[in-house]
Amino acid sequence: MTLRKDLAIIADWITPQSRILDLGCGEGELLAYLRAEKGVQGYGVEIEEARVVAAIRRGIPVIQQDLDQGLRNFADHSVDTVVLSLTLQASTYPRELLLEMLRVGREVIVTFPNMGHWHARWQLGIRGRMPMTDVLPHTWYDTPNIHLCTIRDFESLCHDNGIAIHQRVVLNERRRETWRNRLLPNLFGEVALYRCALMAR
């Protein structure tokens, strides 16, 4: 079972035998891997009908729910890790969702497409068009992605809300980690991956 590079990094960050919640789990590929390979007990949360069916067919416990309605049904600290993979930018209340995730889990893993990437900057800054990339393949008028941000934006949100960043990995457009990504992540990173937790008070 091989996972897409960004999912493989998330899988590496998950503790074996832990309990997780995968928000916007899609067809459940990450959870299927984690259940099989790491003995993880996990639930997916997904709104889209066909994906719910696909996850069920995979044998993944999946709860059909709209993330924009919050996570009230999940108790405080009821899981070890809450994962939000390439979904933050599609949520109506990203800040509230992030804080809810930090309430439900000890740790959160968040990944998102970086709008600071040189290709996006090129499209907007030079060509004067809304960016379209392989992680953001939609036209501006037909996109679920309504809250796009850059790596610097996200880190500033964390800073302002008492969220500690424990680890960050930035991947380029070929889903690789290179020295350029490390040196200038906000320019060369196309996908950003974070492990965060609430700062100790």
């Binding site: 639930y43 009908e49 719910v52 416990p61 999946v62 709860i63 059909q64 049904n73 999940f74 108790a75």
Partner: peptide, 21 residues
């Protein structure tokens, strides 16, 4: 139904939930 799902989640049961339009 969500109450049932929430209770099952709380006690660690495998549970899937579908809300059909």
């Amino acid at each position: 139904s969500r109450e049932i799902v929430q209770a099952l989640y709380t006690c660690n049961r495998d549970v899937s939930y579908a809300e059909i339009e």
